[in-house]
C-alpha cells in the first residue's frame, strides 16, 4: 500500500529526494512571501513569510495522512500535541491561578502579577488546598489522599448538574411534549373543508405534533431495558429506533456541511493566503 515500507530503518533515496524537494519548495515560498510582503518592515515581512509558509506546510503535512502515515504527518502531529499541551498548561496557570486565585488570596501576589486585588475569600484557599492534595498522587505513599478532592469534585458537579438537567432538559422537555394533537380544532367539517398542505396549515401542524409525540414515546420505549421487546412493545421500540436513525441521518447531513466548510476554509487559506492565486 505504501511506498518505501520496506525501508523502515534507513530512508530510501526516494524519501531523501522528497525531503529535499519539500525543503526547497519551503525556502522558495518563504523568500517569495518575504519579498512580496505588505508589512512595513523587512523583518516583519520575513517573519510573516515564514509563518504563512510554515502554516501551509503543516496543513499539507496533516492532509498527507489521507494518503498514508508518513514522516511529515508524524512531525506535524508531534508538534501539535506538544505545543497544545504546553499552551493549555500556561493558560491554566494564567487564567486559573493568576486570574482567579491570586486576586482573592494575596495583595502582594496581585501586585506582582499586575492583577487588581479583589477581596480575601477563604473559599479560594480551600480550592487551593484541594489542588495541592490532588498533586499528592505523585507521591507513591500519599497517593490515596488525592481521592478526596476528586470525590468532592465529582460529587458536587453531579449534584449540581442533576437538578439543573432534571429541570431544563427533562421537566421542560416533558412539558414541551404536551402539544395539541389537533391544532386549532374546530370540528371535522371545518378540518376537511380547509384541508391544505401549507406549512402553517392545520393538517401539517397537527401531523408535525403527532410525529413529535409518537417519536418521543417510541424513543422512550426503546430505552426500556428490563422488559422484553415483543409484540406491541417491540413494535413501538422498533419504531423508536427508526426515528432515532432518521434523526441521526439529518444530523449527519448537517455535519457533512460543516466538514466541507472546514475543507473550503483550509483550501482558501492555501490558495489565498499562501499562493495568492484567488
Amino acid at each position: 500500500m505504501a511506498t518505501g515500507n520496506g525501508n523502515r530503518k534507513s530512508p530510501s533515496n526516494a524519501v531523501k529526494i522528497i525531503l529535499v524537494i519539500v525543503a526547497v519548495v519551503f525556502l522558495i515560498s518563504w523568500i517569495s512571501k518575504a519579498t512580496t510582503g505588505m508589512a512595513d518592515s523587512t523583518w516583519l515581512n520575513i517573519r510573516d513569510g515564514f509563518l504563512i509558509t510554515f502554516a501551509a506546510f503543516l496543513t499539507l503535512s496533516i492532509f498527507s495522512f489521507l494518503y498514508n502515515d508518513n514522516p511529515f504527518y508524524k512531525f506535524a502531529e508531534h508538534l501539535y500535541v506538544g505545543v497544545s499541551a504546553a499552551y493549555w498548561m500556561c493558560l491554566g496557570f494564567w487564567s486559573i491561578i493568576v486570574g482567579n486565585f491570586v486576586p482573592h488570596a494575596s495583595k502582594t501576589l496581585s501586585t506582582f502579577f499586575k492583577v487588581p486585588f479583589q477581596e480575601y475569600s477563604w473559599f479560594y484557599y480551600v480550592a487551593f488546598a484541594f489542588g495541592v492534595i490532588l498533586l499528592m498522587r505523585l507521591l507513591p505513599k500519599a497517593g490515596w489522599i488525592a481521592r478526596w478532592p476528586l470525590a468532592v469534585i465529582i460529587g458536587t458537579t453531579a449534584g449540581f448538574n442533576l437538578s439543573r438537567y432534571l429541570h431544563s432538559d427533562f421537566m421542560s422537555q416533558v412539558g414541551n411534549t404536551f402539544q395539541p394533537l389537533f391544532v386549532d380544532w374546530q370540528g371535522a367539517g371545518h378540518f376537511f373543508s380547509n384541508l391544505s398542505l401549507a406549512a402553517d396549515g392545520q393538517l401539517v401542524m397537527s401531523a408535525g405534533n403527532w410525529i413529535v409525540v409518537v417519536g418521543v414515546l417510541c424513543g422512550l420505549v426503546y430505552f426500556f431495558f428490563s422488559k422484553e421487546h415483543k409484540g406491541m412493545f417491540g413494535a413501538a421500540s422498533r419504531l423508536g429506533i427508526w426515528i432515532l436513525m432518521i434523526t441521526f441521518g439529518a444530523s449527519f447531513g448537517y455535519t457533512v456541511m460543516g466538514r466541507i466548510s472546514l475543507l473550503v476554509g483550509r483550501i482558501t487559506f492555501l490558495f489565498d493566503d499562501w499562493l495568492s492565486i484567488l
Binding site: L66, Y67, I260, L263, V264, I267, T268, F271, I277, L278
Partner: peptide
C-alpha cells in the same frame, strides 16, 4: 478511499479557483 479524498478536494479547489 484516497481517490475519493482527492476527488472531493479537487471539486472544492476547482469551485474556489473559478469563483
Amino acid at each position: 478511499r484516497r481517490w475519493i479524498f482527492l476527488f472531493i478536494g479537487s471539486t472544492v479547489a476547482l469551485a474556489l479557483l473559478f469563483h
